[in-house]
Design a protein around this nucleic acid. Structure first.
Lengths: 228, 228
DNA sequence: TCTTGTGAAGTGTTTCACAGCT
DNA sequence: AGCTGTGAAACACTTCACAAGA
């Protein structure tokens, strides 16, 4: 058994959410116990890797038997500090923003949508679940009042930098940015970019056969990549 | 100068789209020449890494001077085989699908939306740009006829596996999956998953200060991560 | 015998330091 | 002097092989 402070690598940490998702799927269809090979099947990763990742969190399985699904979900969730709920704000209530808001309102549990902002007078005041779209001018104030921990930016690219600065001013330290632009924020904040065009370009690079880009291994095995 | 076949690593390849995006931004604001430090600033990566990545493609810069912005864009685009346009189909015309379709219709250039599918009779026949939403039953046939190269899946999770199989049957080898489920497809196809919940979980792990997950390095420097 | 957990080996990636042009 | 390009070192991650436990 390792001390809890010796933690998993960043690469492994990025896979843990995927394990939780697959475990919940399995639990939902009545599976109570899994072995590393079952999980490999469900996630598209290697059994090797899953065992190594999980073993870093603690001795979660029984040798010769496998892992208890419920127990494993709990252990990983605890490790990821998912017992709590994160307060999330959405900035930009266009088509994409509305789609994400709809997802957030139903997915519940780990993330709660706590505020929605837009700059268009036409949208301000619109209802989103039991929230109301507010003016972007109120971002710093509302972020502080509601103790928003994560901002999701879905504005047009030119507006993104400005609202990101307001969000940081409001004390936010986690930003999920869907605008196709590199945000410049202080080191107190972490930005994760999700850009459709970049994803598509990266994907098109991976076109298999006709061997491109050195050798048969075509993709770095990451949580969001599956090569089979 | 290296032979063209000795290619960049997968990790570097994943960063190239980001370089193109930043270079286009710079070109748009009138910048004609950049040095590796400028690009580092624009992308949030390290100058070291940018020089190394670019040098693998060829001798693109002038020592003591830097890189020509236009020339660099061309070189990277050529390297990534971006002279051509990919034919893309969207499967699932809900809120998210509609938002993505709108982006695709304007972004043009490297990707062209060539077909849209849904399973709901209410949506079939709706116009999307100059396309018409078709029944999912026609996926294999239309994929072959239009020689679709990339499928974007935005269906509910339970439908995703089925439409992915139809898409593969239609000959597609690149799948961008927004449904929160692990798709099971033959090795002839590559799947890239983009899942809001997973992205948010991975992001929340990176909450800075209060040092979590070993040491000061909080994120694997990937194209889509910026820690400052 | 089955499966986990883990040191060790192998592989890939980043960082460094500096040689080589301009 | 300034900046690129690159071998070498440092680091991180994955894969392997097998010991240990049920």
């Amino acid at each position: 058994m390792k001390p809890d402070s010796v933690s998993v690598s960043p690469a492994a940490a990025a896979r843990l959410p995927l394990y939780i998702r697959s475990l919940k799927e399995l639990a939902h269809s009545g599976v109570e116990q899994v072995c590393s090979r079952d999980l490999a099947e469900a996630t598209g990763l290697e059994a090797h890797q899953i065992r190594k990742d999980l073993s870093r969190i603690g001795n979660l399985g029984k040798r010769g038997v496998g892992y208890q699904v419920d127990g494993l979900i709990d252990e990983i969730s605890t490790y990821l500090r998912l017992s709590r709920t994160w307060r999330v704000a959405l900035i930009g209530y266009g088509r994409l923003g509305a789609a994400l808001a709809a997802h957030l309102l139903v997915s519940g549990e780990n993330f709660r949508l706590a505020a929605v902002f837009d700059c268009s007078a036409r949208k301000i005041g619109a209802r989103v679940g039991d929230l109301e779209v507010m003016s972007w001018k109120r971002i710093p104030q509302v972020f502080r009042e509601c103790a928003i921990e994560m901002a999701i930016i879905t504005t047009p690219p030119l507006a993104a930098q400005g609202v990101a600065e307001l969000a940081v001013e409001g004390g936010v330290r986690l930003i999920l940015n869907f605008a196709p632009i590199s945000l410049n924020v202080p080191t107190t904040a972490v930005v994760r970019n999700v850009d459709l065009a970049t994803e598509m370009l990266a994907l098109s690079l991976q076109l298999p056969s006709k061997k491109r880009l050195r050798g048969p291994r075509i993709a770095r095995p990451t949580a969001s990549w599956a090569s089979a």
